[in-house]
Design a protein around this nucleic acid. Structure first.
Length: 203
DNA sequence: TGCCAGGCCCTCTTTAGGGCCTT
């Protein structure tokens, strides 16, 4: 089965900002997109082995009582390692999610071979006039209907996947590009913002 | 138990500082 035309859009909810200072994942959500369509989903809460503070409870709506009976991180991450195996990956502010993915998989001696592209870095280049580049703002800016609650893993990954597809569509239309391989999205996010328009015109 | 980041990007830049974005 070819994995080249498929990406997985993922989002972590966590106990804080830095796995290097002991923060852990508490929820993972992801959607698998093949040829522009959602073909699979993944969502699991996971017990980080300690209580989460009230800021995280308020921010995510995930409570200590919800996590009490959730499976431990190692069990969920094992399943998730299988889910993402071999696929390229997308996340909004991917450097954040990559740090947690790397840290949680390291704890269970698992790895992954896919490459990350950041939807925020793409949006900063494609939607340069957006008021800001937070996920919720960009969803509105791209006229994507949204009714659920942001800051839950599956919902945010669904919204990120819709934003991702909207950006690819806008690039195709504006620059008359027939298809956009993952490698092109990598190149766009590594192109300086001021050069992106010229880069895509010449593609 | 608590300590709490880091990469990108702009500019009054590069011998630096600060805002943005993620939880």
């Amino acid at each position: 089965m070819s994995k080249a035309n498929t990406v997985i859009v993922l989002d972590f909810e966590t106990t804080g900002l830095s796995p290097d200072y002991g923060d852990r994942a508490i929820e993972i959500g992801a959607v698998r997109i093949k040829n522009g369509k959602v073909v699979d989903r993944f969502q699991e809460l996971m017990n980080p082995g300690r209580r989460i503070d009230s800021f995280i409870e308020d921010y995510t709506g995930i409570t200590n009582s919800m996590l009490k009976d959730a499976p431990p991180c190692k069990d969920v991450m094992k399943q998730f390692a299988d889910f993402i195996d071999g696929y390229n990956l997308v996340a909004h502010n991917a450097s954040f999610d990559k740090r947690f993915l790397d840290a949680e998989l390291k704890k269970i001696s698992r790895n992954y071979s896919g490459k990350f592209v950041c939807s925020m870095l793409l949006a900063r280049r494609i939607y340069q006039d957006a008021p800001n580049h937070q996920l919720g703002t960009l969803v509105n800016y791209a006229n994507i209907p949204s009714a659920g609650k942001f800051h839950r893993a599956l919902y945010d990954s669904e919204m990120t996947s819709k934003l991702w597809l909207a950006m690819l569509k806008d690039i195709r239309q504006e620059y008359d590009i027939k298809s956009i391989p993952f490698t092109l999205t990598q190149k766009i996010t590594k192109t300086p913002k001021k050069n992106v328009h010229k880069f895509l015109q010449q593609w």
